[in-house]
Design a protein around this nucleic acid. Structure first.
Lengths: 207, 207
DNA sequence: GATTGTGAATAGATTCACAGCT
DNA sequence: AGCTGTGAATCTATTCACAATC
């Protein structure tokens, strides 16, 4: 928005971390904080905090530090989470239904507005405030509610076809939980989150 | 194990990806593959595959490629997933119970041998093959079953105390799903997986 | 002839250290 | 006096390109 698109995903993820820290500071009624103090409290690097923030503009006051509320607002705008993002979940298995009812979404900018599955036994069942709809209705619903983001929680072998269906439905971004290398459409950003890769990373260090 | 410990987490995660690809190739009865062909099939980089693999030894045959079954075995040993890893889940909320019954664990080297919560209403309930136990029993069970890895699925405000309890119980590694910056004990490897950070990364690119 | 393994080259990320503000 | 913002230095990762090998 305010800056170029070519920031590294690592730096971008750190911006999210800073935002989370700032929210916590605000709850603790801390109004001002220096990069040094923030690094100390949250086990981060002060130089990196300053570099990351300076990349997007001058957010601090020399000699003083950062205004917590102000910086938080700026970072929320930066990440685009100052407005709501309509989202859907595709795959009403255990993980999909768990996420559908995730209370953290209440305080986030992401609104889960649909939950889909292609198993007729699941279609029509209620999950919290949502009713499972058939995957074939994906296209209509994405258009109707203006869904931008899809969370993909289908089995590995169904991931690609569902990704393709989401692309066709006009979704903008996909968070994929299936352990596959998706063939990506350049118009639709995707991020894969694979539990076993995290566990294997930990396993490597077990000796 | 076979090599130094100072590999980057990125390269390590790519090794997991290669392993996943090799398993898929084996199912398709592909016995030999070149880095180029593998890169092409799975949308990876051939040079990087070779560099990553060569870092741990000479696994291929010049002019020919890699033996799928052999390379798979080597990578499994490398990651330490050729033996089973006893694991527990702490936090029997929606995410914890969904993971407890995750069918993917059946074919993995990770065995979920305990599920814990401190809510007395949850203690004693069954989740698949597991019965929820009270968190105060953590220490005993970790010792009894020799649990190495804990998956932490408690609310954010309870994450640090549960992490500390796991450290005290002698756990070796923790996969944390709570959105907090944990204060880490240097003896216990931890990896935090934060859903909102992934979603915010996607949100940034929505324009 | 084909493909690996690898040093050299490039690109990218992090840390240092201090000039420039408040 | 203290802290940010930043260029320069360092460290790390990726890509290139080719000699070594089958």
């Amino acid at each position: 928005m305010s800056h170029q698109d070519d920031i590294s995903p690592l730096a971008l993820n750190r911006i999210s971390v800073y935002l989370r820290c700032l929210r916590q500071l605000q709850e603790q009624e801390v109004h001002r904080i220096s990069s040094k103090e923030m690094a100390h409290r949250f086990h981060l690097s002060a130089a990196q905090i300053r570099k990351d923030l300076a990349y997007f503009g001058e957010f601090g006051i020399r000699g003083v530090g950062y205004d917590v509320a102000h910086l938080r607002e700026r970072l929320e705008k930066l990440l685009g989470v100052e407005r709501e993002h309509p989202a859907i979940i595709v795959g009403a298995g255990r993980v999909g239904t768990a996420l559908a009812q995730f209370p953290g979404f209440r305080t986030s900018s992401f609104r889960i507005l649909g939950l889909f599955d292609n198993d007729p036994r699941k279609v029509g069942t209620r999950q919290g405030e949502l009713t499972v709809r058939h995957s074939r209705e994906l296209g209509t619903v994405v258009a109707d509610v203006g869904a931008e983001i899809a969370i993909l929680t289908v089995p590995a072998e169904a991931a690609q076809e569902n990704y393709d269906a989401l692309v066709a439905a006009g979704i903008k971004a996909v968070l994929n939980f299936a352990p596959v290398q998706l063939e990506l459409d350049p118009r639709v950003r995707a991020k894969t989150v694979d539990l076993t890769i995290f566990l294997e990373e930990l396993a490597y260090f077990l000796r």
